[in-house]
Design a protein around this nucleic acid. Sequence first.
DNA 1: CGTGAAAATGTGAACGGTCACATTGATGAA
DNA 2: TTCATCAATGTGACCGTTCACATTTTCACG
Lengths: 355, 355
Amino acid sequence: MRLQNVTVHIPLGVIVSDSLPTGRTPSIRDVARLAGVSHQTVSRVLNSHPSIRESTRLRVQQVIDELQYRPSSAARALVKGQSRTIGVLSALSAEYGPASSIAAIQDAAREAGYFVNTANLSRGEPSSIQAAVDHLMYQSVEGIVVIAPQVRVIEAIEKLAIAVPYVTLQSTSGEGKHVLSVDQIAGARVATRHLIDLGHRNIYHLAGPQDWIEAEARMRGFLEEMGANDVPTTAPILGDWTADFGYYAGRELLRVRDFTAIFSSNDQMALGLMHAIRDAGLDIPRDVSIVGFDDIPEAAHFWPPLTTVRQDFAELGRRCVALLLANITGSLNEASSSPLIPELVVRSSTAAPAW
Amino acid sequence: MRLQNVTVHIPLGVIVSDSLPTGRTPSIRDVARLAGVSHQTVSRVLNSHPSIRESTRLRVQQVIDELQYRPSSAARALVKGQSRTIGVLSALSAEYGPASSIAAIQDAAREAGYFVNTANLSRGEPSSIQAAVDHLMYQSVEGIVVIAPQVRVIEAIEKLAIAVPYVTLQSTSGEGKHVLSVDQIAGARVATRHLIDLGHRNIYHLAGPQDWIEAEARMRGFLEEMGANDVPTTAPILGDWTADFGYYAGRELLRVRDFTAIFSSNDQMALGLMHAIRDAGLDIPRDVSIVGFDDIPEAAHFWPPLTTVRQDFAELGRRCVALLLANITGSLNEASSSPLIPELVVRSSTAAPAW
DNA sequence: CGTGAAAATGTGAACGGTCACATTGATGAA
DNA sequence: TTCATCAATGTGACCGTTCACATTTTCACG
């Protein structure tokens, strides 16, 4: 017994000094040699297999620490045939909403032991969608979160018949497999109803880009609520989500000035609107009431503080990951499919019309 | 010749029908068999090796398209010993500045054929830095961009003696290897100088969190410029970048009211500040002038439109990638090391003091 | 028409993990 | 005592690429 230990030990000494050529990162076999076990035992330690003697685990772990050994995720991915990576396809990723969701997605994914790879959809070129998806597929992601819910993108994705599960945002509560819903329609209806309740009858809607699903849903919610209350309305104006556009739209709108309230499809455009309205010498909310959508952190400090509809982007991101992972592992539980309901936050940009 | 073709063709037919068990994704050898070449030839086609006959390339490419074959990045990473992935370590990733930079980083990385993996630093717990770095290292990233330039984070990173190159942001133009500079000091000085030139002598500074390198640099720029013009000043207030804090700080500040101008370390806090000032019945810029920093897209539509210092976040992101890749490949050219100079954008939130 | 260099292609062994399947030694029931 | 069982560990193959090196084909030139 003792003799055996000695014979084992001497080769070990030799191995220590020359088994690790400088520069090469240690592999599982290097660890095995130094710990005097087989590579499989090391693998078992790494994966916390139950049948490992505590003393063995300790010895192996010590060598791992000494060598600063890290298992190669490439090798692991290769043999397991899975990358433990999910992809995020996003547009407008500098905006508060998407950015918050992406951050939450990353946190949730990391917690579940997944990596996140992101591809941006730069300036909706038609080929860019294909390129972005290719980029993600090339990394062999196991699933994709589409955070750029434009009709065009969704269609392209469906057409591509991607080999992996994906999750996207939708207004209506769809089939529930690919679709994560925030009830944008309900949010828009609450906002619109708020204006109607205050007594407004001439209400405009500044919508988002036509092919954004969220924009379309909010527009629909607006029209539905107006219809339900028998309030006539004009065609919504189609914007591009930016404050700049809101300002521009506001200036155009003010040339007619037959309205007492505007419901903007997001907070940034609402900000631009308010800018234009003030520029025209009008007062908010006395002359015009404004409602936004999203409740970005700055909205409470706009002038006046903006009445808006709050969305829980972080929760959305978390749910995206939950739903996607359920899709990936095949364990699709229904719990996560209840749509998120946005909530109206009343501040000072809305009031009863003065006339 | 003809005979040979026939004998080759028949096995091919057989192979087609049963060589691809349903469900398994095709490998390079599947492609090779179907194209009647060796796997190495397919590899050469994939890597556009020069010594490939055009007819061969075409044949192989056709099979690739038919099979929708995609090379496994895991296998490639394994054999090449590199992942073609860079990591991004970020805090506050929902903010406009970081988010824009991250988006630019992703675009630039993708263009260079790299993947991007992001890890968020949630709520500066001490262990969270280690965890985030571990997460990235586990994916064997080839380099890291640190977009959360807090002293604490940088120190932790340096202490970890990470095995890969990393790039971070710094105020001063440092050694140039790890460091990418935006001349925050110059930006802050320009902003401060603007206020001094207008005639202000009682200027406060609302700074960012103490351990943020950018916050410290802007504070330094402020103090330097004040000193250079012999304007006495009080200690800056330390904020947390949010509009909420700006509002809070504004209310506190107004209890003394011995100032005519405030330089805020970012636009969000400036927004909160303006909110508080207006709440107190004061006018901007008549009673108080405000300067921000960053020039977020909304700043032009604040009330009043905010005078601020513009940073080119996208360019910053691109440079991050360029510098990091130079570090990775070892081809460190000096071209990219010239610091970015932020630019003052004068709008309506600043004017000469009324008294 | 032979020759040799260059172009085009093929062969087998890595890379670093995990998997399926041994093998060993200890324990307890028959 | 003996054998089945189980815990603990070892062995060799394999995942899908690329690399180094070998081999074949092509083609210009003497």
